[in-house]
Every structure is written in C-alpha cells, then in structure tokens.
Amino acid sequence: MAKAASQIKMPVGVIVRKTPGVTRWARWSWRAVALLPGAGPADWQELRREGETVEYHAATLPLSLWADETEAYMVNLSDGQPSLYLVLRDELKGETPLNAVLITASPFEGQDYADTGEEIVEKIPMTEGLIAWVRDFTLQHHRDEVFVKRRRDKKRIDLVEDGKGDARIRQDTDVYRAPRRVLQ
C-alpha cells in the first residue's frame, strides 16, 4: 500500500479588480475577486477593462495543503462559502501597489496574518474544482483527535504555605500587611 503524500501543491492565479475610489483620500479601491486553478505565471497582467475598472491577473501563487492542517480545512469546507485567503502587502513598486505574498486554504492561518495588521487578507470564494480538491485531500488525511481529560495528581497542596505573605515581615499575625519603613 502506497503512503499518501503529506503535502500537495497547486498553482492558483489571483484576479484583482481595481475600481475608482469613493473618497478623495483613496483614489483606487483594490479587491481580490476570483481564482484561476492551475494558472501559469503572471505579474499584474491586464485581463479586462471597462471604463476605469480594470481586472488584473495579479499573481500565481502555490496553494499548499498539509496533512497536519486538515482540521483547519474541515472548518473552511463546513463554512457556507468555502474560500481561499490571499495575503497582500502594501508595497508600492511601479504601478502595482500590492504584492501578493501567500494563498492558503486555512482560515486559521488567514486569521493569523490578519491579526498582525501589517498585511491585507482577502477572502476569495473557491471554485467547485478547488473545493473538491481540498475536500479529497482533507478526507484522505484527517484524523479526529480523541479528547483526553487531564487527571489531577494526588499531591496535597495544603500542607506547606510557601511564599505566603511578605518575607520581610517577621510576625505570624498579619502576613498580608505591607512592611513599614524603619525610621532612624
């Protein structure tokens, strides 16, 4: 019996739409709108233009699935709309203000990047083919972890009162009293 690979990869193209901004402070609004499974390499290749709205094939990134992350993929697949999470960095290089860094199927990893506040995380709905690909890998590798309740040890903790009160106080009556300054 052949052992299944613990990691698989697929190149996924990301479509980003540039629309005119609605305020004077934001000239353009950038939004990831679609995915291209199995896409070839691209670097902000213009796909379509309608007036001032432009769609770009921004990048093609490897989508990696790991056997250890199947719990996260199960959470994603059980969502109403399974999605991939695109991590973008705000780096101005030429005409492209965003740099596509990572694409992941793990909502936990997407949340980790969103928590830093340094990156922009876009949630992009998966195509039917991507959903099937992620589901097949997840079902092949997912193992439910059995909950094991931790048992208390039998050590008695009520016998010695180490560290109770302030060591600078030399009396047994009020161990919670603050020490006084010695006047000379």
Rank of each mutant, 00 (worst) to 15 (best):
A105W: 01
G80K: 08
G117I: 15
E122Q: 14
S106G: 09
E118F: 09
N99F: 12
T127H: 02
T127D: 02
V101L: 09
I131A: 11
Q81Y: 02
G117H: 15
D136F: 13
H141I: 13
Y73V: 09
L77P: 01
H141N: 15
L86H: 02
F108K: 08
E119G: 01
A114P: 01
L86V: 08
W133V: 14
L77Q: 04
A100D: 00
Y85S: 00
Q111E: 14
R89K: 09
G94L: 08
D115W: 04
W133Y: 15
I120D: 02
K123P: 03
R135K: 14
P125E: 06
G80Q: 05
T96P: 01
T96E: 10
L139R: 10
E118W: 07
G80I: 00
T116A: 10
P82V: 13
Q111K: 07
E119N: 06
M74Q: 10
V121S: 05
D112I: 04
L130S: 09
L102Y: 15
H141R: 15
P82T: 12
P82G: 14
L139T: 11
F108M: 06
R89L: 11
L84V: 03
S83T: 05
D115G: 12
E122N: 15
G80W: 01
Q140R: 14
Y85R: 04
T116G: 12
S78R: 12
P97L: 12
N76I: 00
P107Y: 13
Y85Q: 06
I120V: 09
N99E: 09
Q140K: 15
V87C: 02
Q111L: 13
P125G: 09
W133L: 15
T138L: 09
T138D: 12
L84H: 03
P107N: 14
P125T: 13
H141S: 14
G129T: 13
P125W: 01
K123H: 14
R135T: 11
E95V: 12
R89H: 11
G129M: 13
K93I: 03
G80L: 07
V87N: 00
A132P: 06
Q140A: 15
M74F: 02
V87M: 01
L130Q: 10
V121D: 06
R89N: 10
E119Q: 10
P97R: 10
S78K: 08
